[in-house]
Computed example of a mutant assay.
Amino acid sequence: MKRLAAAGTVALCAALLTPPGPASAAANTAVSSIPVAPGTSIEMHVTADCAGTTCRFDTTANLLTPTGPTGFPGDAWSRQTITLRSNDRDVWQEAEYSAPSGTPREVKGANHNNVLSKMYKSLRDVEISVTSFGGGPIERYRVDGQSAPLEWTTGRPATEAAFFVCSHIQVVYSGVNLTTPDACAQTTFG
Rank of each mutant, 00 (worst) to 15 (best):
H45V: 04
H45Q: 13
V46D: 04
V46R: 02
T47Y: 01
T47F: 05
D49P: 03
C50V: 06
C50F: 07
A51N: 05
G52Y: 04
T53I: 11
T54F: 03
C55V: 01
R56D: 13
R56C: 03
R56F: 08
F57E: 01
D58C: 02
T59K: 03
N62K: 11
N62S: 07
N62W: 12
L63T: 11
L63V: 12
L63D: 02
L64Y: 02
L64N: 10
T65P: 07
T65Q: 10
P66K: 04
P66E: 03
P66T: 04
T67I: 13
G68C: 05
P69Q: 09
P69D: 09
P69V: 06
T70Q: 15
T70Y: 04
G71N: 14
G71R: 09
F72Y: 10
P73M: 10
G74Q: 14
S78W: 03
S78Y: 05
Q80K: 15
T81V: 13
T81D: 06
I82H: 01
I82S: 00
I82V: 14
T83E: 02
T83F: 00
T83R: 04
L84G: 01
L84A: 06
R85V: 00
S86G: 08
S86I: 04
N87C: 07
D90Q: 10
V91G: 01
V91W: 03
W92L: 13
W92V: 07
Q93D: 04
Q93C: 04
E94W: 06
A95M: 06
A95F: 06
E96K: 07
E96F: 09
E96L: 13
Y97Q: 05
A99T: 05
A99G: 06
A99C: 09
S101E: 12
S101A: 15
P104S: 10
P104W: 13
R105N: 09
V107L: 09
V107N: 14
V107C: 10
V107A: 14
A110Y: 05
A110W: 05
A110S: 15
A110P: 03
N111C: 11
H112A: 09
N113D: 15
N113G: 08
N113M: 08
N113L: 10
N113E: 08
N114S: 11
V115R: 08
V115D: 07
S117L: 00
K118Y: 11
K118F: 03
Y120K: 00
K121C: 02
S122D: 03
S122Y: 00
S122I: 00
L123I: 02
L123G: 12
R124A: 11
R124P: 00
R124I: 09
D125G: 02
D125A: 09
V126N: 00
E127T: 14
E127F: 00
S129C: 03
V130K: 01
V130A: 04
T131H: 04
P137Y: 07
P137R: 11
I138M: 12
I138S: 08
V143I: 15
V143N: 08
D144Q: 14
Q146N: 14
Q146E: 13
S147L: 06
S147G: 14
A148C: 02
A148T: 07
A148R: 13
P149M: 09
L150S: 10
L150G: 08
W152M: 11
